[in-house]
Design a binder for these strands. Structure first.
Lengths: 199, 199
DNA sequence: TAGAATGGGTTAACACTGTTAACTTAACGA
DNA sequence: TCGTTAAGTTAACAGTGTTAACCCATTCTA
């Protein structure tokens, strides 16, 4: 019974994830995964072309999870502005409460990313299109002012990534409170797009 | 004459830099450096504790170069707002025109960073303190509105890093023009801090 | 001036890494 | 029962960072 409950492929993915979370991505070698699964290292190659392919599959999973998380949070908001801010807030919340999963998406082998087809990021684009929609709606209703919603959404995403990276990678100055930093950064990013009526 | 002109230490650093720029950081191994320098791999250990130490020295150099570049650009500006925006613009300009050097700072072995003392980033903090100064001056003159200049400066830095990373790591959507994206992102980041008098 | 110590390098080796080729072994279809 | 296929194995290659032991010329000292 080598394929007890899960298939070997699933067991490899699950073990990789666990190993990645617990030991960090430096400890993630084909042999370490195989040892944990209880199989030979080369067996992994029966299901994945190479390590990049394996990592990329993991990334896809994390992206999917992030998307679902954001979509769920956004559904609970009512107004456009709320959905917009909730989208942004949820992104950061996911990243900061699941730093390991977030790291998988952005920090694990950036060189592996460039080697793989961009089409695979369709899922990631899903919740990004969501944001574009909110901005377009906000602009239509005169609540936001932005030149190009598509670019704006990407810009927001990039800025959020920057804020999150700094926090996660612990590059933040000791003198600065983490939560305050995140809060003020988000405020600035969000407020920059809203028409100043409430202020 | 083993120490012909430069010391061996300097030749190792120079070669590492060149190798890093031309081949990417995946190709940077102790043996590849040594081979290029014309010396045995273990000789590197006479001048650097380990590979992390070597990389960290390279990072320090890039940080220094970035600082000097920004300081130089800022000196050419006159008004506070100009200095502020020029500081931001210069950061991005350096990153996009010297992606390899920028990558050294942020992308080369992030795990190596956490192992090294934060004090070494004093130099990086130099041009960061510069930005804090501009913000404080801007606030004092009623040109900018920000709650906490120190946090604001860090937030700007993080957001810029995000924008730059997305561009450099080619995670930008094909449909989006690179320069336009950078320009709009910068506009948004800068405008978010200025008091809306000119708009 | 002979001998010890030292600075600046060397080679050999260890324990890892991703990956490939060749082999085994069990199950299944004709 | 034979041939084929699927799913796994072991052995090996070339590369990695790093350490230990050694060599050798220069310099300091008795």
């Amino acid at each position: 019974m080598s394929h007890a409950d899960q298939s070997l492929r699933e067991r490899i993915l699950q073990t990789s994830r666990t190993l990645l979370y617990s030991q960090g991505h430096l400890a993630l070698s084909m042999r370490s995964i195989a040892k944990e699964v209880g199989v030979s290292a080369t067996s992994i190659y029966l299901y994945f072309d190479n390590k990049d392919h394996l990592l990329h599959t993991l990334i896809e999973e994390s992206v999917e999870e992030l998307s679902v998380f954001i979509e769920d949070k956004v559904l609970q908001a009512t107004t456009v502005v709320d959905k917009f801010t909730e989208n942004i807030r949820a992104y950061v919340e996911f990243a900061l409460t699941n730093p390991e999963k977030y790291q998988i998406i952005y920090n694990v082998h950036p060189e592996a990313m460039s080697r793989y087809p961009k089409e695979k990021f369709r899922k990631a684009r899903r919740c990004y299109e969501l944001l574009v929609g909110f901005i377009e709606e906000g602009v239509a209703k005169g609540l936001m002012e932005v030149a190009n919603p598509v670019i704006a959404a990407y810009s927001i995403w990039a800025q959020l990534h920057g804020v999150v990276s700094v926090v996660i990678n612990q590059r933040l100055d000791n003198r600065i409170d983490r939560d305050l930093f995140v809060q003020e950064s988000l405020d600035h990013i969000v407020q920059g797009f809203l028409v100043r009526s409430t202020v």
